[in-house]
Write a protein that binds this DNA or RNA. Structure first.
Length: 380
DNA sequence: AATGCGTGGTC
DNA sequence: TGACCAAGCAT
């Protein structure tokens, strides 16, 4: 890897910050340096692109304008505000940290990166971002952009998926960061990383820091950053139970830990759980599968249903590490069932907005609506 | 250290 | 469609 002289570092700071002053993005959370604004935006931006975050951030600030409002908000309301954004533990951790600031720190923010990291949900990157942007501490904020930008600038060959590599980058960037404008420096790196120095289609030819970009100068830009491949999502087959009652549909609230924690979906039945030891999944007749799903559902919940397949309605949804294939099956109950053994409730479509539902549930609902529309067409 | 945890965009 | 990527953190 390259090593930069003090002269080169000075020149880089000037070039980068001049460009940022002129071309830095105007974003809703950049109107001031209020730590609450910086914090909420940084949490939302974890693994999430700017364009996705903007509307969520704006709604969030209307609903929870201060750290006190967030601390005292009903968690259900918070989860509704977050629904669709993903990584839902971010929202819970955000509220936990807000409560800690209000109740245990008397509304006083920690002002250094080290102290900020003691708050739930704030790791090394977010701590660096808040400390530098809101409080002017000269610390790096090493995210995916920083990894990409500096690995190219200096041809750093360390594998960025390895935890130790972060320390190398923090040290390198710690030397280059402008101690007079650390927040602007870190944000300028992010803007650079999402404009001229993108992952797939960089435009380093026209980049303001083209002359500092060793990988580009050597024609090896797309070799950086070095990262080992991620494992493929594991396929998982589910039956999604669309159970209609006179007043709505049966929904479960998922357990408070694990995937989609606390969110509301149709009851889901893992097909693998319906397959017996001496059987191979995928070879089981669909009718048998559906029959067993009804038996399993009755055993779990005490609710008797007669399930039937919903023809050609399949939903696919890929998470980071799981690929779900869901088949819709449906049942209609003539009366609302006894829900004493069922971890959920009947929800009318008009009330869906009051519940936090993940994207996979939105897909299931759209598929079901299409089914009803096509059935209606046949009748008419 | 390795794994679990969402979603949307792009090619 | 599948693979990869995007302002990571907790355990």
């Amino acid at each position: 890897m390259e090593h930069w002289s003090p002269t080169k570092i000075t020149a880089f700071r000037k070039t980068l910050l001049s460009w940022y002053d002129e071309a830095g993005r105007v974003l809703p959370w950049r109107k001031d340096h209020d730590p609450y604004h910086v914090w909420v935006s940084e949490i939302m931006l974890q693994q999430t692109q700017v364009q996705t975050v903007i509307p969520y951030y704006q709604r969030f600030m209307t609903m929870f304008p201060t750290v006190d409002a967030l601390a005292s908000a009903p968690t259900e309301q918070l989860m509704r505000a977050w629904a669709g954004l993903g990584y839902y533990s971010r929202a819970r951790n955000l509220q936990r940290a807000a409560q800690e600031i209000v109740n245990e720190r008397h509304g006083q923010w920690p002002t250094t990166a080290v102290e900020l990291q003691s708050l739930t949900g704030i790791g090394p990157y977010t701590a660096g971002a808040i400390a530098s942007i809101a409080f002017g501490e000269p610390v790096p904020a090493v995210d995916g952009n920083a990894f990409r930008v500096f690995s190219r600038l200096m041809e750093i060959d360390a594998d960025i998926t390895k935890p130790q590599t972060r320390q190398l980058f923090e040290q390198v960037i710690g030397e280059v960061i402008d101690p007079k404008r650390p927040g602007d420096f870190n944000q300028a790196i992010m803007d650079l990383g999402s404009s001229y120095m993108t992952a797939k289609q960089p435009d380093s030819e026209h980049s303001p820091v083209r002359a500092f970009n060793q990988a580009f100068l050597d024609g090896k830009e797309l070799n950086y950053p070095v990262r080992s491949a991620k494992p493929r999502p594991v396929p998982m087959a589910y039956l999604a139970l669309v159970i209609q009652t006179p007043t709505g549909y049966l929904f479960t609230q998922r357990p408070s830990t694990g995937m989609l924690a606390g969110l509301w979906t149709f009851p889901l039945q893992l097909e693998a759980d319906l397959v017996q030891d001496d059987e191979k999944q995928g070879e089981l007749d669909e009718e048998i599968l559906i029959k067993r799903a009804a038996e399993e559902f009755a055993a779990d919940t005490g609710i008797e249903v007669t399930l039937s397949a919903v023809p050609s309605r399949r939903v696919s949804h890929t998470f980071t590490h799981q690929k779900w294939q869901l088949k819709l099956v449906q049942a209609t109950l003539s009366a609302d069932p006894d829900l004493s053994l069922f971890p959920g409730q009947v929800i009318a479509p008009s009330a869906f907005a009051q519940f936090a539902m993940p994207t996979v549930q939105q897909k299931l609902w759209r598929a079901w609506v299409k089914t009803m529309e096509s059935d209606k067409g046949k009748e008419g």
